[in-house]
Design a protein around this nucleic acid. Structure first.
Length: 863
RNA sequence: GCCGGAGUGGCGGAAUGGCAGACGCAAGAGACUCAAAAUCUCUCGCCAGCAAUGGCAUGAGGGUUCAAGUCCCUCCUCCGGUACCA
């Protein structure tokens, strides 16, 4: 006889509820519903790679999904969406190899991703799905580019790019690792090419100021500040000896001007050729040429050792009229400041290294205190003798001429006085400088957004009329870039031609494409109004939904996507096209999920398929050597990648979701352990058994109107409070723990109160929505619980008459006593002093001090 | 080097300045079973002890406090980012 058991079977109930949600459009966001508070919860959308989803994706997606479901039950109108950041290199490289159009590969990958994401039961409004490679989407990416162009924020420039001679192609910075190509490991050199650049530097100050008010991780905010790199310093004008020309340098240490003993120009500096003397020309030309062609690899390798050449020319130090030699060196960058520095070797470590190597005088003009030297581990006499470098604060000396004296002043005052003097004399001025560079915005690739630009015969460039958007990608046979770095689109002969509809002029289209960042710069805005063919988004809807209330994604985008996108948003804000100055109010990074890996005694990592487990120990299949396990980044080469499909097939999506949230705090790095999934799976099984009669599949007869015991009722209300607060704070691990404690209690009861079990089901619903919906229906409800009212707690039901109080004497625990919860400090103390153990410990001693913390402890200090 | 984050049992982790180790995993013992799985019960930081109990424990060392994983100072280790930015 076969017995049919109605066990917890996620494989059956999960697809059922996923279909229900789809069919009923349960999670559709309602535009401009002013009767409810809105919430826009955003996930960083994925690049749909051929490898499919990995376990890192659902971590952030589960976190936001729980929050959304929780907020819906609390009456919010929630916008929660998903889409595809689908332009990118892998599809293009696959196309180059196989001839398959990237759109075909992309569509296939999206299908896989979508199937996988749906199998997690995420509550996305799928009607708002977007795809950056869809012409109906990139039409508006191009439209925003038009706005940038119209504002003068896009310009053409001859820029050095990463050129890989072996591959015959240009590579993005992200594709270059340590000066070599990510694919094939070939050397990469810098080669100047025509590029499109966005003037992000114009927004440097606004981007910096905006950071302060963001509710973001402090580290990420700091990274953006450092990336923008604002510094306040001064420009100082130096006369070149025997020339009409002057050189302007940028310095943050104008207080040390009297200690400048030489000057350095970037090798590419325009004045180099002009001022170099005949006898130095050969050496300078050779150095300039070497710098120009040097690969990134060579440049990084030479990082520590200074190189340079003397131009033969001298500059006049404006404060003391000393002649100082002018050198060139690649440690001075043309793209920062003015491309020229005054060098003060006594008070700058780089200048010190350079001067030491080339025998240039080092003149100390600042005396640090003995304490500062001790703290820094520096010999003060060496500093004063110019044998050691001092970059900290100190008192200036030998810093005076007939008009200005800094002698006796500290750094801050000296800077101020010097700038004032320079400005009065017309020799310089205060200047703010940024590390941030303009954004190289073009790629010589096929699989990206075409620029909506045409080149005219006279060399000018203009936008195509808005009515011609989108400029779609042409079909091509060959996606490979040409050998000289021309973009593949240059081969699309027909596409390339564009005839001006007004003048009839024959023009040529721009053949570069936009980088992958372009589509992700504004995608959150498209979610607001994804099907609008008249405009990128409707202003009323934008006003209703923006800003994004919570944005969750990896920390790897701390400066790139998260900065580029803020820049675009600020431009749109200045144009009145969006209503908020910042796109994302609150940002959280999910921590990486690591895999388990194994290493031998030398610390070499062994791929998991080469490892054998015996008696709880691990051995190399090859050598038999015992290995130790450790968490490590999941990678194909280590064979430690966990496939979410397999976990869902074995345990179900609810267990997967619950496990990833139970692992630890959302933002922490955590190692995956499949055995942990079994733990939460046991928990869900237990919940199932507490509600369902496994013989009939109906509601268990033990779930009835039996009153809840007082202790259980108290625990129930305490748990509602804890779970409510924890979910709101995204502290899901402790919320789950609280639910486990409650279930352990409830499942021990012979008869379980039905209302209590319903409350439990509602509490777990955001985290394990499938089993919750199923149990909700078994408990006799006909509709989804997605919009059921979130359980409320009653403080009065959480109160206890008596609590256990710890009594300490001199901080040592001496007794544990039950006392009335309402006892005053005085009463607590008296009860404690009456205790026999306490009496024994305090007997014959003087009470010095007493502390009573209601509900906690009493501490008696005796002498 | 600089900036950021983190160091708590065998493991993941918990702890408004108030009994460190909740919850879970793993491990061990038992119950149920012909047996296994599932389930249930118990044990489970380290040292000493049959035990009651005592001592030691939150990377190291100091400090503040009646009381410190938590606050302050110094240092060490690991992870992430960044690097000639004048």
């Amino acid at each position: 006889m076969t017995e049919i058991r109605h066990n917890y079977n996620p494989a059956e109930i999960e697809p059922k509820w996923q279909k229900f949600w789809d069919d009923h459009k349960t999670f559709a966001a309602v535009d401009c519903d002013y009767s409810r508070k809105k919430l826009f919860v955003l996930d960083m959308f994925p690049y749909p790679s051929g490898a499919g989803l990995h376990v890192g994706h659902p971590e952030g997606y589960t976190a936001t999904d729980i929050w959304c479901r929780f907020k819906r039950m609390n009456g919010y109108n929630v916008l929660h969406t998903m889409g595809w950041d689908a332009f990118g290199l892998p599809a293009e490289q696959y196309a180059i190899r196989t001839g398959t159009h990237p759109a075909v590969t992309t569509a296939k990958n999206i299908q896989t991703f979508k199937r996988q994401l749906k199998s997690f039961g995420f509550s996305f409004d799928w009607d708002r799905e977007i795809n950056t490679t869809d012409p109906n989407y990139y039409k508006w990416t191009q439209w925003i580019f038009c706005k940038l162009f119209e504002q003068g924020l896009a310009y053409e420039s001859q820029q050095p790019v990463n050129w890989c001679p072996e591959l015959g192609t240009v590579l993005a910075n992200e594709e270059v690792i340590n000066g070599r190509s990510e694919v094939g490991n070939f050397p990469v050199i810098r080669k100047p090419m025509r590029q499109w650049v966005l003037k992000i530097t114009k927004y440097a100050e606004e981007l910096l100021k905006g950071i302060d008010d963001l509710d973001w991780p402090e580290g990420t905010k700091e990274m953006q500040r450092n990336w923008i790199g604002r510094s306040t310093g001064a420009e100082v004008i130096f006369q070149i000896d025997g020339h009409e020309d002057t050189v302007t340098v940028y310095t943050t240490r104008c207080d040390t001007l009297f200690g400048a003993t030489y000057m350095v120009l970037a090798p590419e500096h325009l004045l180099v050729a002009k001022i170099t003397t005949a006898d130095r020309k050969a050496a300078i030309d050779a150095y300039v040429e070497e710098t120009r062609t040097k690969s990134d690899m060579a440049r990084t390798d030479d990082n520590k050792e200074k190189t340079g050449e003397f131009t033969g020319a001298y500059a006049i130090n404006p404060v003391n009229h000393q002649k100082i030699p002018i050198w060139i060196s690649d440690y001075v960058l043309l793209s920062y400041g003015t491309g020229a520095i005054m060098a003060v070797p006594a008070h700058d470590t780089r200048d010190f290294a350079f001067a030491t190597k080339f025998g240039i005088p080092i003149i100390c003009i600042m005396a640090p205190s003995q304490e500062d030297c001790d703290a820094a581990g520096v010999n003060r006499d060496d500093v004063l003798a110019g044998k050691a470098c001092w970059t900290g604060d100190g008192v200036l000396f030998q810093s005076a001429n007939e008009e200005i004296s800094l002698d006796g002043l500290h750094v801050a005052d000296s800077k101020k006085k010097m700038v004032e003097w320079l400005e009065a004399k017309g020799l310089g001025r205060e200047r703010v400088n940024y590390k941030l560079r303009d954004w190289l915005f073009s790629r010589q690739r096929y699989w990206g957004e075409p620029f909506p630009l045409v080149h005219h015969k006279d060399g000018s460039v203009s936008l195509v009329p808005e009515s011609e958007l989108p400029v779609t990608l042409p079909e091509m046979e060959n996606y490979k870039p040409t050998a000289d770095g021309e973009p593949p689109l240059a081969r699309a002969k027909e596409w390339l031609k564009w005839k001006d509809p007004v003048t009839g002029e024959e023009c040529l289209r721009e053949t570069n494409t936009m980088p992958q960042w372009a589509g992700s710069c504004w995608y959150y805005l498209r979610y607001i109004d994804p099907h609008n063919n008249e405009r990128g988004w409707d202003p009323e809807k934008e006003k209703y939904w923006m800003p994004v209330d919570l944005y969750v994604g990896g920390a790897e985008h701390a400066v790139l996507h998260l900065l580029y996108s803020r820049f675009w948003h600020k431009v749109l804000y200045d144009l009145g096209l969006v209503s908020t100055p910042e796109p994302w109010k609150r940002l959280i990074h999910q921590g990486m999920i690591l895999g388990i890996s194994y290493k031998d005694k030398r610390g070499v990592l062994i791929p998991n398929d080469q490892v054998e487990a015996r008696d709880g120990k691990f051995f190399s299949k090859e050598t038999g050597e015992e290995l130790t396990s450790l968490p490590a980044k999941m990678s194909k080469s280590l064979k430690n990648v966990v496939n979410p499909d397999e976990i869902i097939a074995r345990y179900g999506a609810d267990s997967f979701r619950l496990y990833e949230m139970f692992m630890g705090p959302l933002s922490e790095v955590k190692p995956w352990n499949t055995e942990g999934v079994e733990g939460v799976n046991r928990f869900l099984n237990k919940l199932w058994r507490a509600v369902v009669d496994q013989d009939t599949g109906k509601l268990s007869a033990d779930v009835c109107d039996a009153p809840l015991p007082a202790d259980s009722e108290r625990l129930l209300h305490q748990t509602i409070k804890k779970v409510t607060e924890d979910i709101d704070a995204l502290s899901y691990n402790t919320a789950i723990s609280a639910l486990m404690i409650l279930l352990n209690d409830l499942s021990k009861l012979p008869k379980r109160n039905k209302a209590a079990m319903e409350t439990f089901v509602l509490l777990i619903a955001p985290m394990a929505p499938h089993i919750a919906e199923e149990l909700w229906s078994i408990l006799g409800h006909n509709d989804t619980l997605a919009y059921e009212k979130w359980p409320s707690f009653d403080e009065s039901k959480m109160k206890v008459a008596e609590v256990q109080i710890l009594v300490q004497v001199n901080g040592k625990p001496k007794a544990r006593m039950m006392m009335p919860a309402e006892a005053s400090q005085e009463q607590m103390l008296q009860l404690a002093l009456a205790n026999a153990d306490v009496k024994a410990a305090t007997d014959g001693k003087t009470i010095v001090k007493t502390i009573a913390v209601p509900g906690r402890l009493v501490n008696i200090v005796v002498k």
